[in-house]
Amino acid sequence: MNVQDILNITQGKLITLSADLSREVKGGCGADLMSDVLASIQPEAVLLSGLCNPQVVRTAQMADVAAIILVRGKQPMPQTVQLAEEEGIPLISSPYGMFELCGRLYQAGLRSLEMPVSGDDACTCND
């Protein structure tokens, strides 16, 4: 699934102008608290969030997010859009709510890229 497919499925509006619509999206993650995102998300996911400030883009950049969807038709602050343009992360606004969007994307075959909470796992550097 790529960003264009995501736009179609979510009936989303692309807010950033310079987005690469062919960029592949490997899965999804939904959260409003940025540390929750950083705690759980794996690379190349689409991030669904109700948060509209520039931090959602910063978080996305740190976590190698492929695209951001703002839920419930939210319009981001101008600084958010500008940062997303600079970092080349597609920013999408969809009229649907978080639950509906997760459901639609999951049904369309997008898997979850949220890691379960349990593990002190991720570290692979001590070999």
Binding site: D32, L33, M34, S35, D36, A39, Q55, D120, A122, C123
Partner: peptide, 19 residues
């Protein structure tokens, strides 16, 4: 918290990402 912070996961995330 309304700005999306204060999940109480910050230091936990740091511990997870560092050696």
């Amino acid at each position: 918290r309304e700005m999306g912070f204060g999940a109480g996961m910050g230091l936990v995330n740091i511990a997870r990402c560092t050696d």
